[in-house]
Design a protein around this nucleic acid. Structure first.
Lengths: 344, 344
DNA sequence: ATCCTCCGTGTAATCGATTCCACGAGGAGG
DNA sequence: CCTCCTCGTGGAATCGATTACACGGAGGAT
């Protein structure tokens, strides 16, 4: 592969001049410029990004460590991150943690070894050693979706509080009283926050949230299935199951289906994170939708601000409720009488 | 960030010795080794991968350019690729082409600039200039899923021919005679091959495949919707729509739903590529399943073979039919009388 | 005792870029 | 005509690693 020396030789100038042309530095004669450009053309020369990075100490690369690539929410996030980064002249290297702290650490370390300019993380846990080191070492960093309390890093996320309140109101309006939640890992902020928001909203309606109705999941489909089975085995099963992410909702659906029960007639289902497939499930699933694309873009902008010396800022966007059929038919008119519906 | 020099100073040895310890070169005294290791520990030293790559001319990184990250088939592929690569000591940089040749080219070029050791591509088209250059320049490369005829690069893919034949037999057995297909871009091998396999299977059953029943899609949901609408507007609409990928099937489902028609009563639906969501759509969708994980792993193994000087080999795995309810109930007994069903 | 090996180590070249500094030519101003 | 700038250019240092080569000392063989 041709190097800058070859180009210099071909153009009959020094490597310094070639470099200047390539970085359009002002003081290069028109003549030299054309000769260099011609040489670049004939040799098909492309600068070696590795060498350049070594010298300039910047890679124009961002690292993105996400919790689970198989989760459509995160792939949409990854896509918008890459898009915005590309627009700003950066590449993105994605690391998939599969919700495993050890894998997350592996990726953080690998990315740091590659001297990425900045790191976007959606932590799978309360802060693995590698991540904390990175934060402490001053690597430009931004948390997206999930974050770690007490670590001084900007956070870009959606606030689902209002949407969860809307959801509970919606469920209450439909006559549901016994609501259960499949929570995410307590070590993640999204894991605990969603439960908190749910609990508060329940309290506003004077509804109890017994411990038996709080299932512990891990954001994976299998845990949704397991927890839901537990709910169904209860002497008094809940009327509604609210899954804290889309994969656990999928698992819940599996569990319900396996018992031969129907949604929403026998049990209602709602989820956090809206994804395209929810329109097509049987039945379509009511969900709290995050502005995923905007989240990704905002996170990149914050990170690049930090990298390029501008003050980054945390961003919190609102999530919103998308009502579909999985919790029962919405009341036909806004001022209809209290809907009642008895469950199995 | 600490460099090898700092470690050398701290340990009271030369950088050469430090390097030797780190790459566990045999001739280092036990004493020097422990001192270096201690210095590494106290300084929290991590070798600079950029510098190392420049010197050794290898990055231990693979590039993966996929057609569409939002397609669950490709994210599963990406996941298995990363997994296998990690097991073999490589990292993966993913580029998302969004089915756009220009974006694909952008990523190929960027990856080459970064001097990745090898490239895994699922080409979005018949061969963009950048890709052909890469192949010609001798960059280790392997095509996965899709490939480009005439380019001398190993191919790892699934052969859907038998599964498509099974599908057509299944549909025929259900009494369906008017089958239509939503094809992928003709420039992609998977785009044309699937139509070819479908056409052959139809011929085996003596069924015609009129041009009006071959819709041109682009592997995106929207095109599935558009083509399906066209089918439904035909004077004699098909009884079955077979989408050549999962996203177009999603679009087809949308279109059918929008007309107030039911699947499979009014029109049957089948898809290429099985994904977890197909179990939960309304109705569950019959699909041709590829061994996606195995495909990804085999592709990485082939590429790494090529990189490390072993002869790589093309791999073709079989796909299989997964029958669900979207084409009608399977015959209750193997020797049941011909099922008949009249369509709208 | 002498010579040869082998081992552990350090010095320095190298990878491919960027960039500081010096230098020569040419133009402007005195 | 001399001086001083400015401009275009090239030489060489530099980034952080790896590695060929040289060298000194220890130990074994003769």
């Amino acid at each position: 592969m041709a190097s800058i020396k070859d180009v210099a030789a071909e153009a009959g100038v020094s490597v310094a001049t070639v470099s200047r042309v390539l970085n359009d530095h002002p003081s290069v004669s028109e003549d030299a410029r054309t000769r260099v450009l011609a040489a670049v053309q004939t040799l098909g020369y492309r600068p070696n990004a590795v060498a350049r990075s070594l010298r300039t100490d910047q890679t124009r690369t961002l690292g993105l460590v996400i919790s689970d690539v198989l989760n459509p929410y995160f792939t949409e996030l990854a896509r918008s991150v890459e898009e915005e980064a590309r627009a700003l002249g950066y590449s993105v290297i994605i690391g998939n943690a599969d919700e495993r702290p050890d894998l997350q650490d592996h990726h953080v370390r690998t990315l740091l070894d590659r001297r990425i300019d900045g790191l976007l993380v959606s932590p799978a846990d309360g802060g693995s050693p590698g991540m904390l080191d990175a934060a402490r070492a001053g690597t430009p960093m931004v948390f997206v979706d999930r974050w770690i309390p007490g670590v001084d890093v900007p956070v870009v996320r959606a606030d689902g509080r209002a949407a969860v309140r809307d959801l509970v109101a919606h469920l209450h309006g439909l006559g549901h009283r016994r609501l259960a939640i499949i929570a995410g890992p307590a070590a993640t902020t999204t894991g605990s926050e969603r439960v908190e928001a749910f609990r508060e909203a329940m309290a506003e309606h004077g509804l109890p949230l017994p411990d038996a109705y709080i299932g512990q999941g891990d954001f994976q489909a299998e845990s949704g299935r397991r927890v839901t089975e537990g709910f169904l085995d209860l002497p008094e099963p809940p009327e509604v199951v609210f899954a804290a992410d889309n994969l656990m909702a999928l698992g819940a659906l599996d569990a319900v289906r396996a018992r031969g029960l129907r949604v929403p007639e026998d049990i209602a289902l709602a989820a956090f994170d809206d994804i395209p497939w929810f329109v097509h499930t049987d039945p379509p699933i009511t969900a709290v939708a995050q502005p995923t694309g905007e989240l990704g873009r905002a996170a990149v902008r914050a990170l690049v601000d930090r990298i390029e010396g501008r003050p980054p800022q945390s961003v919190t966007l609102a999530a919103r409720l998308v009502v579909r059929r999985s919790c029962g038919e919405p009341a036909p008119t806004p001022h209809s009488p209290v809907t009642n519906r008895s469950k199995s």
